[in-house]
Amino acid sequence: MKKILVTGSNGQLGSELYVLSLKYLKYNWIFADRTKVTLDDAELLKAQLNEIQPDIILNCGAYTAVDKAESEKKLAFAVNHLGVKLIAKYAEDNNVKLIHISTDYVFDGSSSSALDEEAITNPINIYGESKRAGEVSCIKENPNSIIIRTSWVYSNFGNNFVKTMQRLMQERDEINVVNDQEGSPTYAADLAQAIIDIVESKKWIPGIYNYSNEGKVTWYEFALVIREFGNYKCKVYGIPSSSYPTLAKRPRFSLLSKIKIKRIYNVDVPNYKDSLEKMFTIV
C-alpha cells in the first residue's frame, strides 16, 4: 500500500484532500500539520520525513500570510523556500513522487491574457518572492517533481474570501470590494480532485501546471455571485485597490491558463460559478 504524505493538513487544500481520501482507501494517507511536518526547521523536517518514509508527497503546507510576510520575510522564506528545497531533495534522493503547490503571486500582474506555465515570473511582494524561490529550488533539487500553481483558493474550511463575504454580507448593510484585480477563483475541493487524478494517472509528466476554475472575474464580480447564491440583501460597491491599501501589493491580473493540465492529465476544470454553487450546497 503506497503511503501518501499530505503536508499542511489543516489548511483548505489539506482539509479537502482529507475528505476525498475517504474514497481512496487503497492508499495509506498521512495527514501532517505543522507539528508532524515542520517546514520552518530543516533538521527536524529531515528527521520527520525519514521517519514517515512516504512514497508520494503532496506539499500543501506553506506560509500564506501575504501581508504579514512583508515583516516576516525570514519565516516566509524558511517555509516557502528552504522547506520546499529540503522536501524536493528528500524526494529526489528517495525516489518519492512530489506534487508541490504554488501560487499566481509569482507573477507581477502586468499581463492582459491568461498566463501559461512559461510566462515570466516577477513577484511584487515577499510572499510571491518566497513562493517563486520554492519553485526554483523544487525543480533544481528534483527535476521529476510536479508543481501546480493555483489562485484565489476558497473552501468550506479555513479562512478565505468566500467565507469572509458570507459573514460580512450577513452582518452589514453594505460593503466595498476591490474591482480592479482580475483572476479566477479556485474551489479547493476541485484542486484536491485534480491532484488525486494526477496521482491515479498511469503517467507522470514532471513540470509546472496551472489549476484554477474557469472564468475571469474581479473580486467585486465574485462578491456579487456570492451574494446571489447566498441570497444576501447587503449592497456591494466596487472600489479601486488604491482605496483599500494593503501592506503587500497584489497582482492586478493573474488569470491562469489551464490548457496544459487539461491536455496532459485530462482533469476536470469546472466554471467558478458551478463550483461556488457546489460549496453553498455543502453544509
Rank of each mutant, 00 (worst) to 15 (best):
E43F: 11
I101H: 02
Q193G: 09
P54G: 08
K74C: 15
A114G: 09
K131D: 01
S15D: 03
N160T: 15
V84L: 11
V136R: 15
K233D: 14
I101S: 02
Y244S: 12
D173W: 07
L49A: 01
K273I: 04
G207P: 04
G109S: 06
V6I: 11
T218S: 11
A114K: 10
W219S: 14
E214C: 14
S201R: 08
I30S: 11
Y24I: 10
T218Q: 06
I57G: 00
K233R: 13
L13Y: 11
N159A: 06
I56F: 05
R227Q: 11
A88P: 07
Y187T: 00
E200H: 15
T218P: 00
V225W: 11
I4L: 02
K46M: 13
L25K: 11
V37E: 06
A62K: 11
K203V: 08
N179D: 09
Y187E: 05
S110P: 07
P240I: 00
N160G: 15
A119D: 00
Q181H: 11
T35Y: 14
P143T: 03
D40W: 12
M1E: 12
G109Y: 00
T121N: 03
T186S: 08
S21D: 11
V162H: 05
L276T: 01
E174G: 04
K85C: 00
I282Q: 05
K202F: 12
A91K: 10
D180K: 05
G128V: 02
A91C: 01
H100K: 03
K202I: 05
L224G: 10
D93W: 15
N94T: 08
E16K: 08
A76E: 10
N94D: 01
F222D: 13
A65F: 13
A223G: 08
A188I: 03
D274V: 07
S21P: 03
D116H: 02
P206V: 06
A188T: 06
F253C: 15
V96L: 07
N122S: 05
G215P: 00
